[in-house]
């Protein structure tokens, strides 16, 4: 029964990883961009939430109403002002520019907030839990976070499948040149994709900061978790990515239950295992 609890906890955590991952795979799908600074922008949104909760005295969940639009706008502007200039046949500029951005954000946050561990406070919700039977207990906070994660992913799915903007994003992703001929300004569409990507990850960034500590150097790990979830789930498959995040979360939880030092390593090892045995991902469609 201890194990059941561990698996449940891992699943809840995996929901957040899936949100990191979906942000990554959205921009990869639309403009073949991999943003190395993804994790640092996740951490930046946590710091933004920290400032808002402290100055305005609001709950972290309420702070999302401000954090998400701000980070989404930052994403749009970054794409238009920076990443759009790097797109082309050469794969080096986007990687190195986003790597440079990652270093800038990490050090910028370090200057502004020092290297201390921080955490967002959610009050009594943090300790509340739902008991099922005698042995299984689900923390209300992780449960709420998981529900939010799944809801965000469902909304994104509907947005991409059912709306005009989503149709445009899919068209741009399929054939950039023809999308242009059809009247899409690709540079704007890329900006929209980045805004969506970072909006989603800002939600995850704030949620995960209620649950565990963060510091200026926490970004790379978050980028890697998102990336691992994408590969484990199979590139380009939104539900596969959700499952990939859950697999990663569960593996980390089990690893951590065996030995706390083993938590992160267990996740990495499963990622490498998937890469070795099933490079198209556990739930991916073979290309």
């Amino acid at each position: 029964m201890v194990w059941l609890n561990t698996v449940i906890q891992g699943t809840m955590l995996g929901g957040l990883y899936a949100m990191f991952a979906i942000g990554l795979s959205l921009i990869f799908g639309v403009m073949k961009l991999v943003n190395i600074a993804h994790g640092d922008l996740i951490v930046l949104s946590a710091y933004l939430a920290l400032v808002i909760t402290q100055t305005m005295g609001v709950d972290p969940f309420v702070s999302l109403l401000i954090v998400v639009p701000i980070i989404a706008t930052v994403g749009y502007l970054l794409q238009r002002g920076l990443f759009n200039r790097t797109l082309g046949d050469d794969l080096l500029p986007p990687i190195l520019v986003s790597f440079g951005l990652s270093i800038i954000i990490q050090n910028g946050v370090l200057v502004a907030f020092s290297g201390d561990d921080r955490r967002l406070q959610a009050g009594p919700l943090e300790v509340a839990s739902l008991r099922i039977g005698d042995t299984v207990a689900i923390g209300l906070l992780p449960l709420l976070q998981f529900v939010i994660a799944v809801a965000v992913i469902v909304v994104l799915h509907l947005l991409i499948r059912r709306t005009k903007t989503g149709r445009g994003l899919r068209a741009v992703s399929d054939d950039q040149a023809m999308a242009q001929v059809m009247g899409f300004n690709n540079r704007h569409m890329y900006g929209v994709a980045m805004a969506l990507s970072l909006g989603i990850t800002a939600v995850a960034g704030v949620l995960i900061a209620i649950r565990g500590n963060f510091d200026p150097s926490a970004g790379p790990a978050r980028l890697i978790y998102g990336f691992e979830a994408v590969i484990i789930g199979g590139v380009g498959n939104i539900w596969g990515t959700l499952l990939g995040g859950i697999v990663l979360g569960v593996v980390q939880a089990i690893g951590g239950a065996i030995d706390p030092r083993f938590q992160i390593l267990a996740g990495h090892l499963v990622f490498l295992l998937v890469l070795a045995l099933r490079p198209s991902g556990l739930f991916g469609v073979k290309a």
Partner: peptide, 23 residues
């Protein structure tokens, strides 16, 4: 292992490998 991924995905997985060695 790493050559299975291309471009930026290769980049990140090379980093993961280094992290695995560190841990």
């Amino acid at each position: 292992l790493l050559f299975r991924l291309k471009g930026a995905y290769f980049a990140i997985s090379s980093w993961v490998l280094a992290e695995v060695l560190r841990l």
